[in-house]
Each structure stands twice: as C-alpha cells, then as structure tokens.
Design a protein around this nucleic acid. Structure first.
Length: 584
DNA sequence: TGTTCCCACG
C-alpha cells in the first residue's frame, strides 16, 4: 500500500511556505533548501508547485534544474511546466518539455495542447505547429474549442491565414476568443479590410465584442488611416461603457496618431488613469511622425520624471522624432542617456536613427564617423542605407556612390539600393550610368514596390494606384485632376524636371507622373467631401518631391487641409505650407 | 488550470 505523502493541500506547512515565498527567487530557493533538509526534496507535488512559481519568477534556468531533479515526472507535472513556460514566453522550453512528454509516453491532454500551441504561435514555427496539430487530431481533441481557438491564433500568427480560416470555419461553435484570434490575425498580417469584414459578420450574428476585439479593430484603423471608422469604434467603446484599460487606451492613442489627429491622441493620453511604457511610447511616436519633434522630446522628458523606465522601442521613437525634427543636440543626449542612465544597449535600429539624424542635418562626415567608430561589428545594410539617403539629400555624390556600391555588394537582391544609386547618378547628370544601373536591375528581375494611396470617404476606404482607371468614376476623377493641376500652374506650380523625378521607393517616373496615386486620391477626396473636412491620404511608399510641391498648391487653390501619411511620417498641408517644412 | 489585444526602425 502506498503511504500518502505528508502533503495535503492546503494544510501542509511546506505548501504554505511556498505560497508565502511568492515570486521572489531568493525566497523560493530557501524554500527549496528547506524541502530538501526536511526530507521532501523529491516530493513531486511540492516540486510541481515550486516549479510553477519559479517559472513565474522568470527564472528559466532554475525551472529546468528543478524539472531534472523531480523523480518520474507525471502528466500533472508536464502540464504545469508546459503551461507555465508557455505563459511566461519561454516558448522554446515549452516545446522541448512537450517533446519530452511525448517521448516519456505520457498522453497529452487538451490543456497540454492549448499551452504548447500558444508557444508555437509565439515562435511562429509553422512546421512544428502542423505536427502538433496532427497530434491533436490523433489524440481526439480536434473539436475542443480551446484547442481550436489556439490553432486559429497559431496559424494566423505564423502567416498561414488560409488554414487559420479553415480551422475557424470548421468550428462547430465559435467562442469570442476564436473570433478575436481570427480578426487580429487578419490585422497583424496587414489585411485590415478583411479584419473589418469578419467583424461585420460577427456583429450581424449578434456576438458581443469585447476589448480585445476593439483593440484589433483600432489597429486595423491605424493601419488604413481610417479615422472615420476609428472614431466609430471609439464611440462604441464609450457608449457601451467599456472600461478604458491600458491596452485599449493605447490602441486609441495609436489609432488617432496614425490617422494624423495628434490632438485627439493627446486627449486620450491625458484622460487615462494608468499609463505604461507602451502608452508613453505610442504618444511620443505619434508626436514624432506627425512632425512635432519638440513635443516628442518634451514628453520624453516628462516620462523620465513621472513615467516608467523607457525601453528600447521608446528610444527608437524619440530618436526618430529628433531625426525628423532636426533636433541634433537633443538626439545626442537622448542616445547617450540610453546606456548611461538606463543600461540599455543600443541596437541596430538606434544606430540607424542616429545616422539618419546626423545625415539629415547635413553632418555627413560625422554620420560616417559614427558608423565607423560607434557601430560595433560590421554595420547592417540599414545603417548604410540611412547614410545613403543623406548623401542624396545633400547631393554628396562621391560618398553616395561609394556607399551605394558597398550596399550593392553586400545586399545585391534589394531593389531599393539600385534605385537609390540610379537616382544619385541622375542628380549628378550622369544619365549613362542611370541607364546602366536600370539595366542591371532589369536583368536581375528586380522590381520596385508598387505604390498606392488610400482615402476614406464615409467610412469606406478607396485605393488608387498610379495611372489607375479601375474606379467607376475614373473619367470624372481624371478630368477633375487635370483641372486642378491647371489651377495650380496658374498659381505658380512648376513640375520638377525629369532628372529629379524618380526617388527611392517612389512610384515609377513616366508620362503618367501627373497621375501619381496620391494625386488621384486627393482629387477623389475633393470631389466627394465637403469643404470643412480635411483630406487624409495614406501612402505605402514615400511621397515624391513633385507631389509634395503640387499638394502645397492644391491646399491653396482648393482651400483645403490635406494630410498625407507616407511610409515614414505625416505631411500636414495647409495654406501652401507643409508641416515637415520641406525637411523629410 | 486554457485560447485572443497595445509602442519603433527598415
């Protein structure tokens, strides 16, 4: 007969000692020592509880050690450790413990699967997850709603939306979590429109959304720059009395900021009762991308005093705000404070920001020196790309050609580098070289990204690409645009000469230049909206110099505020002036 | 005992 171990929850003193130790590693180690001394060092139940807490205390090494000293791990121990490691993002360990469980011939349960599949989702490992999906079916959990939801999330996060949707569609009953997983899956893969379509379906079926639903929808609005829809979501959240938690509030800030309405973003920021690092970072970044560099740095200053410790994303936001705002001195001390005050190690992205900042300000040799002296190892292509952009901006051909050639040698598959080199030659008037670079690009079958612009009218988003005639009112739009450009020319607009027409990641230069997607979208917006509302355009690439100049004139002749979000930042055009002050 | 949601660069 087996003698019961002297642990019987909740009466055992050892168990109480564990509870008291909480999440402090030191205390947990003391309890472990105590267990050993008092003869419970191999008590599986106590060790299981201890393992969960050690894992929650974020010590993966100690978690692994404890597992190794536990005799005959049972299914309870395996489930606990797989769940704990998955929950605290030690995803690889989670998968490895799962593997060990299978090898030990212990049958996984539905609880095992939800945890290990979540770990696979964190790792985005498709092949591994597919294998575990097979285990799920073999073990007979194919219809378990929790397992199915985690599979939907896993496939969506790993980028296989078709399979995610298949699993989702085959669910006999869909939980709200399953809906949320699928909606956020679309949004995270850049399919904002599909996210909204699925939400509509859910809405029509009478399923009540919750705050994760709204968070995903707000991200989708931010992605599309759809302010109207975003406001609708905000109103709905307020009307239905949802409590404004940090995540939801941060999503709202992000949505308003990325739709170009910084004031509203700040309003939400000020109204929040709890602010975390992500919230502060979202607001700082919102200021930066909208051209309010000073405000971004100021808010960062407040964060240092009142807020949580900034993380490395915060520094990217502040430094890029400094770069776009020409705030070189501020950027220098912010960068220094990163390691001096917060003990953070600057990464590649921070170096990119610094080179970008120095380069934009015309301090090319300092930028070059920064790369040589302060960037450890061999600098990533992105760092050189930043310098190259600055060379073109300040027309430094010698350095520009040198950097571009270096980039082509280390990163020959990137069409952006070829385009940049060709542009630099064009600026120098070396049209023979321009032709040569273009030919190489052609031979290697490298293509530039296709550009497009979107605009929201009456909560519907319309997309335009260059020379696009797919819109049913195409003729009217072109007519309107021609008319508009004629009025701009009357007011003094002159199209830029050919040699400076094609820039990095901008739309193809040809006779259809006049019909760049942003111009089409603006014409459509002017036709369809009333005078009081601003025109808001979202572009996937950078705005070109000619369009930038043209839009300034359009803002005057059409007497309209026009806000363009390009790949990097916002341009607020009003009365013939752009908020970027031609510094972008 | 579970599955879903927030910030940056390029």
């Amino acid at each position: 007969m087996e003698i019961k171990q002297p642990l019987s929850y909740p009466y055992s003193p050892a168990f109480h000692a564990l509870l008291r130790a909480g999440l402090h590693l030191k205390l947990l180690q003391q309890v472990h020592a105590h267990l050993i001394v008092s003869g419970y060092g191999r008590n599986r139940a106590l060790l299981t509880k201890l393992i969960k807490q050690v894992c929650a205390a974020r010590s993966i090494e100690y978690t692994r050690r404890l597992f190794l000293v536990t005799p005959d791990p049972d299914s309870f121990l395996f489930n606990s450790i797989i769940k704990a490691t998955s929950k605290f993002h030690f995803s690889l360990d989670s998968v490895l413990f799962y593997r060990r469980m299978i090898i030990s011939l212990i049958r996984p349960s539905d609880y095992t699967f939800t945890s290990v599949i979540k770990a696979c989702a964190d790792l985005s490992v498709l092949t591994l997850g597919r294998g575990i999906h097979t285990h799920v079916l073999v073990c007979g959990y194919g219809l378990n709603i929790y397992v199915q939801s985690s599979l939907v999330a896993f496939y969506a996060k790993s980028g296989d939306l078709d399979i995610a949707r298949k699993v989702f569609d085959r669910m006999p009953s869909r939980s709200l979590v399953a809906w949320n997983s699928m909606i956020s899956g679309y949004e995270q893969n850049g399919l904002a429109k599909e996210a909204f379509e699925l939400f509509e379906q859910m809405w029509k079926m009478g399923v009540e959304p919750d705050s994760p639903t709204f968070v995903s929808l707000l991200s989708a609005c931010a992605q599309m720059g759809a302010l109207g829809l975003g406001c609708w979501v905000h109103e709905h959240v307020v009307k239905n009395g949802f409590d404004m938690n940090v995540v939801l509030g941060t999503s709202l800030i992000n949505m308003y900021a990325r739709c170009g309405d910084v004031e509203k973003a700040r309003e939400v920021f000020d109204s929040m009762s709890e602010l975390n690092v992500v919230t502060w970072t979202a607001m700082i970044s919102g200021y930066g991308t909208n051209g309010y560099g000073t405000e971004a740095v100021e808010l960062f200053g407040q964060m240092r005093i009142l807020g949580p410790s900034p993380n490395s994303v915060t520094f990217v936001a502040v430094l890029s705000a400094c770069a776009h705002g020409g705030l070189v001195d501020e950027g220098r001390w912010v960068f220094a404070s990163m390691s001096d005050e917060y003990g953070l190690v600057p990464g590649m992205e921070h170096h990119v920001c610094m080179v970008d900042m120095l380069g934009r300000a015309g301090l090319l040799s300092e930028a070059y020196q920064f790369i040589r002296e302060l960037v450890p190892g061999s600098p990533a292509p992105a760092v050189w790309t930043a310098l190259l952009g600055a060379c073109k901006m300040h027309k430094n051909f010698v350095l520009g050609v040198e950097v571009a050639e270096h980039l082509l040698s280390v990163d020959p598959e990137n069409p952006g580098h070829y385009v940049m080199l060709s542009n630099i030659y064009a600026l120098a008037g070396r049209m023979d070289r321009v032709e040569m670079v273009r030919n190489i690009m052609f031979r290697r079958c490298l293509k530039k990204q296709v550009g497009y612009s979107t605009i929201e009218v009456n909560q519907k988003t319309y997309m335009f690409s260059m020379g696009d005639k797919s819109h049913p009112e195409s003729n009217e739009i072109y007519q309107y645009l021609d008319d508009l450009m004629w009025r701009c020319r009357e007011a003094g607009y002159v199209a830029l000469p050919d040699s400076v027409m094609h820039e990095v990641e901008e739309e193809e230069r040809d006779h259809a230049l006049r019909y760049h997607s942003e111009k089409l979208a603006i014409a459509f917006g002017l036709m369809k909206t009333s005078h009081a509302v601003a025109i808001r355009i979202v572009k996937n690439l950078r705005i070109c110099e000619d369009c930038h100049s043209a839009i300034k004139y359009i803002s005057v002749v059409a007497n309209r505020e026009i806000i363009v979000r390009d790949k990097l930042r916002f341009h607020h055009f009003k009365d013939g002036v752009c908020s970027c002050l031609d510094y972008w």
